[in-house]
Simulated assay, not measured.
Amino acid sequence: MSSVIVVHPPLPGGGRHVTAHGEPLGTAYGLTDLIEYLSRAGLDVATVDLYDESVIEWQGGNHLVWGREAD
């Protein structure tokens, strides 16, 4: 079974695309944005586990990776 939410790899300019069931939700630049998208996707943000792979698939880094690191 695939995850409900996919947080895609960081973009060169920062941020990460977020999709739900393959449909785009937007670009998240941090956890605040991601929580908004989870809410829009109908998830209970008070109880969702960011590490539950059946709910969220993190590609290219975990919840601490949001964009290109400073040079």
Rank of each mutant, 00 (worst) to 15 (best):
W66I: 04
V48A: 06
E36K: 15
G13E: 14
V6W: 00
S3Y: 01
Y51N: 15
L43V: 04
L31Q: 14
L38W: 04
T47M: 05
V18R: 13
G67R: 10
G30W: 00
W66E: 03
L43G: 03
G42Q: 04
D52A: 14
W66M: 03
Q59K: 15
Y51K: 15
H17C: 07
L43R: 09
T27E: 04
G61A: 03
P10E: 07
P9L: 05
N62K: 09
E53T: 14
D52F: 06
Q59M: 10
L50A: 07
E36H: 14
V65C: 05
A41E: 03
Y37A: 06
Y29V: 08
Y29N: 15
V65K: 11
P9F: 01
Y37K: 13
L38P: 08
P24N: 04
T27M: 02
G22M: 06
E57M: 10
T19P: 07
E23I: 04
V7Q: 02
A41W: 03
A20H: 11
G60F: 01
N62T: 10
G14H: 08
G14R: 11
G60S: 08
G15L: 02
L34T: 03
W58R: 13
V55A: 04
Y37T: 08
V7M: 05
H63S: 15
P24S: 04
L50S: 07
P12I: 07
G30A: 02
S39E: 13
Y51E: 14
P12N: 11
L43S: 06
S3D: 04
P12Q: 12
I5G: 09
V7D: 01
V55W: 01
G22Q: 08
E57S: 15
A28H: 02
I56A: 07
T47F: 00
L50D: 06
P24F: 00
D71M: 08
T32E: 13
G22T: 05
L25C: 00
P10L: 03
I35V: 15
Y51S: 15
G14M: 08
L25F: 01
P12C: 03
G26Y: 00
A28N: 03
L34M: 06
G13V: 10
R40S: 13
P24C: 03
P9R: 09
A70V: 10
Y37I: 08
V6S: 11
S39Y: 11
H8W: 11
V65T: 12
S54L: 03
A20M: 02
S54G: 05
Y29R: 15
I35C: 05
G15K: 08
S39M: 05
E69S: 13
G22D: 08
I5R: 09
G42C: 04
Q59T: 06
T32N: 11
V45T: 15
S3V: 00
T19S: 15
S3A: 15
I5H: 09
P10K: 11
L43W: 02
D71K: 12
L38T: 07
T47I: 09
W66A: 02
G61W: 05
Y51I: 05
L34D: 05
E69Q: 14
R68S: 12
